[in-house]
Each structure stands twice: as structure tokens, then as C-alpha cells.
Design a protein around this nucleic acid. Structure first.
Lengths: 338, 338
DNA sequence: TGTATTTATCAAACCGATTTGTACACCTGT
DNA sequence: ACAGGTGTACAAATCGGTTTGATAAATACA
């Protein structure tokens, strides 16, 4: 009833363990006749190599850690897509997808797992501009891929959205439609590279087109989106277009716009990021930047697997090109009652 | 630069491996003085036991598999909550949370992982009434916990929402408000225990209150909710309350109701399941059954860990009591223009 | 004081594979 | 006929721990 070991197979086939191992791995030649006997033995015994023993012998665990600090608020569909994208690729490759959900972004939440020597590689989410976890990963000499990037990325392997381009596309799209008065509901997290880059990119884009710079911090909830949008529309009634970082906030903003008696997109155009929640809900197809979380995470997984296979750590840096999906929430600005 | 092994510690402390092992595990007495030397050695060398070696020696992997078949459509916040709930508990207990995302619910997607002997225990999602995976898990003699349950649950350990009670609460709530003409937008999946039980419970509850039974299958998307709700309202204009299984569909249904010129809750009351997406979005706080996915998955994880700790397989069966959260989308029925 | 029992440690086997050095048989070419 | 390859399989070491039987020292009891 116990599961058969390689020794059982060897005994059954009348050879030694090492011969079986060589037959299985192909690392040394085995006579065709012997191999046939071994195959036969494996089949009749239903042998499967014991992964843990393999791991000990080879020193590789075939386990990839996916580090995703999950705060109370972050259980949205977006997170799910990142995770599902990476998990699918990693499972497919016959690796174990180990999801680590430390309660914060601090480094010491990670060390325990890293030093355990249990992980062949790591994918890191929520990368900060100056991320202490990166230093730890480096010291642990463990291959890792960032989803996102730091301030100084020398020698790092990452995949990130080209956020500058994304913001540029948004502004460009609106300017092309004739808008001159935009406002940006930004995410205010000084640690997250994603957020900081987006904010800088918005300022830069506005300068480029010589537009007034109107931006306001906004939390990741509808109420905040509504409140901030309302304040902005009051303070800057000339505004004809909103770019909203978060999709739930975008929903709130839409309510606020309509609450001001303005129509979308006739009076105010709106662009939001990510197509998860809002896209399913709103009556209009939103104009949105598709950040393709599944593809991004899947690609990160592939990059990591490639590094593990090659046993090399040549840094690979990928910027995903954003896709601006033009929907029904943007249109040329109409002259409206000021 | 190599990581220290137990032998290094032993040499440093001037004892043998076994003594160090005993000091660490406490399974045999070690003299206080010796123990102090060993502690000192461990600290100066920065020793950490190698988990893979431990696993091989003990036969336990400290890894729990979370099996979640993810179809293309299912990357919602609800899934994320289940996963996050279980992952937090399992990581906390110093176990590895291995997320397995087979492309379907079939059994053979699982066998490979189970037979690998890599998992100490398994948590199974999307349990079917007659689930071949359960048989496989049994044969593999691996402890497992279902989130959901089968038709025949003898000897199984599971945690599930008391769906009968949930539906009863919904109907009861509406009846208490004075409604007599309900309609139920159900999920039509003959394999999923969850769905089948809910449908039966709805019929039973209506019988109990002597209500006409109006129900219609509805997909998990807003469009379907809208379309089915519209059809129902046309066919049964006397309907004053809707119970909608899925929250995205509930959103669609709300649009359809308003599209019929009816107000919520004045003309039509609405109850939906789960508080994830819609709850964040609608202007009214929805009356909803909170299925508490995080708590459910966390409890499943705790149950499994308890089984592993006790090394016993006494079946534990838990039905979570649903919470009907009364919001602003249900009210007594108003006389309305027929 | 001698024997029985407990306490603390050692030494070796074991978990289930991989990897490497070596021996043997067979074939080849001169 | 003999040196030199080549093909094939064996034996043993190794990965880093745990576990168990044995042994020596320390204590208990009569």
C-alpha cells in the first residue's frame, strides 16, 4: 500500500537505483532492452518519483513564491487577475505556485520564507520605489522578477506597464478630441512606483500640451471618487475631462458628474484605468487603459521560469505597452453653460 | 557562503547531529548546558533547518493545496476573498499555500498533484454534488476539506453556507414586508451543490408560504440579469420582489427594473447574494446575503490544519449561518399601477 | 556497596532520490 | 594478440535532516 520508490522499481527490473535514475533522466545511456524492463516495472508498480526527495537531491524545489501583500481593502478582481495569470503559467510548468500574503510591504515579513530555501524563485508585487525587499532577495541570491519597478533598476528583472506612455495616451486622446481642461484623480502613495510615475507623467504630459495642471489625490473607493470629482468640478467648472486612476473611484466620479447635472461624455469625458469592475457595470463602455494584469503576471512567470531554466540571471526588463480602449465615455467637448 | 547545516551546528557545539535535532525538537531530553551551547552555535552560524530535508525525513511537506478551478470568467473579487482568507491562515501557520488552478473541474487535472505526494492536505473549491475529485482525494488518503459539499457527505469534512437557511431568510424577509409575488433569478448549474440547493430551497420556501413559484435561470453577467429580469417583469407584472443569485446579474436586474419605469425599493424590492462588487457601486445599500467568503475559507484552512495537527480524520461538518444584511433595496410593496 | 533505573549523548540507519567514480564486457584497429 | 575505446551497469557518496537502538554516566534504591 506504500507508494513504490525507485528502489522498488530497480528491484523489479533487476537493476540498481542508479540505472533507473539514468533511464528516467536520460543523463547517461541505458541499453534499450534494460530501459524496456524499467519502463515495464514503472508501469506495473505505478511508480512516480517522489518530488521532495528529488528536491533534496537536486537542490531545487520547483516552487515559485508569489509575494502579494494584501491589505484589508485589496481583495478586488484586479488582484485576482494578477494571481490567476501567474498561477496558470506556473502550474502548467509543473511548478508549485506558492502564494505568500504578508500583511504589509515590509521586508522582514519576507525573510523567513526566503531563508527557508524553499523557493526557487520569487515574483514580487506592489514594488516600491525604494523597496527593502529587493535588497533581501538579492542577498538571498534567489532569482526574482518584479511586477512593477523600483527607482534604480540596474540589474533587476521586471515587467511593468509603461505608465508614462499610458498617461500620455490618455492626455493625447483627450487633446485630440479638443479638450483643454483636464483633471486627474490620482493615487497618492509616495512609495508605489506605479503611482508616483503616473503622477509625474501626468504633469509632464500637461506641460507638453501646455495645459493647466489640475490633479487631486483620491482613495480607491467610490465615495472618494465622488467627493474629489465634485470638489474639482466646483473649483474648476471649465473642466471637460477627467482621468481617474482607480476604477471604483471612477464610478464615484461618474455619479458626481451626473450629480452636477452634467452628461457623460457630452459635458464631461472620462477615462479610467483597468477594465475590471466598472467596465462590467456602467451602461456606457468606458474609455479605459487596459493594464492587462493577467498577461502581465503570466509574462512575469514566464520570465522567471526562463531564468530558472537558463540558470542565468541576465536582467530582462519589459515595459508593457498600454492599450487605450476608446469607449463611449469620451467625446469632443461641447460648449456648455458655464 | 553556503548555508549552514545541522552538521555544522553540531560540530560547532561539539555534539552530534542527533543531539542538535533533539534539542530542536524537544523529543528527547538535552542537558541545559548542552542546549545552551547548541543555541549559541545556531545563533552564530545563523542556522535554519532546511525545510526540504525536514520534509523528506518526516514525510510531511507543510504544504496545503488550494484547488480552485478558474474559468475564463471567474476572476472576480469573490474568488479573491476566498483565496486571501485561506492563504492568510495557512501562511500564518508556517505552511505553504499552494494555489492550484486547473482549467476545469475534472478529476484528472488533480491526480498529478495528489500523487506527487507534495501536499499534506487539500482544500477543494467548487464542489460538485457528485464530485470525482473527492473520490480521488479519498483514495490518495490525503486530508482534505471541502468548501461546499456533495450530495452524499458521509465521512467528509466540509464547510458550507447554510444555503437553505439563506434562501429562507430572504423569502421570510420579503414575506414579512408583505410581498406575495417574488421571483428568483437562479444559477443554473446542475453540478454545483451550491446552486442546486439554492434552487430547491427557493421552491421549498415558496411552498411553505404558499407563494407562486417564479424562477428563471440567469448567467453571471449584468446583461443576463437585465434580460431575464425584464422578461420576468413582463411575464409577471405583479412581481414586487426579486432575489438574484449573482451580484453582477443583480446589477443588470436593477437596470432592467428602472428601465421598466419602476423604482427600487418602492415598486420592486431586490435581494442579492454576496456584497462584493455591487455593494461598492450602487447608490443604495443593497439588502444582501453576506456569504462571508474570507471567513469561510479561513475556517476551512483552520479545520484542515487541526486535522493535520491531530493526525486524525474525524469528519467535521460546518454550516455557516448566513447573514441577511437588510439594506435599502427592500421595502414593503406599494400598490402600483398595474 | 552492588544493582536497577534514569539521563544524556552517540552512532548508524533511514527518507528517496541524484550524481560520480569505477569495473566489466565487448568491439575496434594495428 | 594486445592496447585503446566505447557502451553499459553497479556501488557508493551525497543532499540535510529525523529517528531509534545502544552506550556511558549519573542517580536511586535496597
Amino acid at each position: 500500500m506504500k507508494r513504490p520508490t525507485i528502489s522498488d522499481v530497480a528491484a523489479y527490473a533487476g537493476v540498481t537505483k542508479s540505472t533507473v535514475s539514468h533511464a528516467l533522466s536520460g543523463k547517461r545511456p541505458v541499453a534499450a532492452k534494460t530501459r524496456a524492463r524499467i519502463d515495464q516495472a514503472i508501469r506495473s508498480l505505478g511508480y512516480q518519483p517522489h518530488p521532495v526527495a528529488q528536491r533534496l537531491a537536486t537542490g531545487r524545489s520547483r516552487t515559485i513564491g508569489f509575494v502579494y501583500p494584501l491589505y484589508a481593502s485589496e481583495f478586488s478582481a484586479l488582484e485576482m487577475k494578477f494571481i490567476a495569470g501567474a498561477a496558470a503559467v506556473i502550474n502548467q510548468a509543473n511548478y508549485v505556485f506558492a502564494l505568500l500574503t504578508p500583511p504589509d510591504r515590509r521586508a522582514d515579513s519576507l525573510t523567513r520564507f526566503l531563508q527557508s530555501g524553499l523557493l526557487d524563485g520569487v515574483i514580487l508585487m506592489q514594488v516600491q520605489l525604494h523597496d527593502p525587499r529587493v535588497a533581501i532577495l538579492r542577498r538571498a541570491e534567489i532569482p526574482f522578477v518584479l511586477i512593477g519597478r523600483c527607482f534604480d533598476n540596474a540589474g533587476l528583472t521586471f515587467i511593468d506597464l509603461d505608465i508614462d506612455l499610458a498617461i500620455s495616451q490618455c492626455v493625447e486622446h483627450l487633446v485630440a478630441l479638443g479638450h483643454r481642461h483636464l483633471a486627474y484623480l490620482r493615487l497618492d502613495d509616495p512609495d508605489l512606483g506605479f503611482a508616483v510615475r503616473a503622477n509625474q507623467a501626468y504633469v509632464a504630459a500637461c506641460r507638453r500640451y501646455d495645459l493647466p495642471i489640475v490633479a487631486s489625490a483620491c482613495a480607491l473607493i467610490p465615495e472618494s471618487g465622488a467627493q474629489v470629482a465634485a470638489t474639482l468640478l466646483d473649483a474648476h467648472p471649465e473642466t471637460t475631462a477627467l482621468i481617474v486612476w482607480n476604477d471604483l473611484a471612477a464610478w464615484g466620479a461618474m455619479q458626481a458628474i451626473q450629480g452636477h447635472g452634467l452628461r457623460i461624455p457630452a459635458d464631461v469625458s472620462l477615462i479610467c484605468f483597468d477594465l475590471s469592475t466598472v467596465a462590467n457595470i456602467v451602461p456606457l463602455r468606458p474609455t479605459a487603459v487596459d493594464i492587462r494584469p493577467r498577461e502581465m503576471a503570466a509574462e512575469a512567470a514566464r520570465m522567471l521560469l526562463a531564468q530558472l531554466a537558463a540558470d542565468a540571471t541576465t536582467p530582462v526588463q519589459v515595459l508593457m505597452e498600454p492599450r487605450l480602449i476608446v469607449g463611449e465615455t469620451t467625446a469632443p467637448p461641447a460648449r456648455r453653460r458655464a
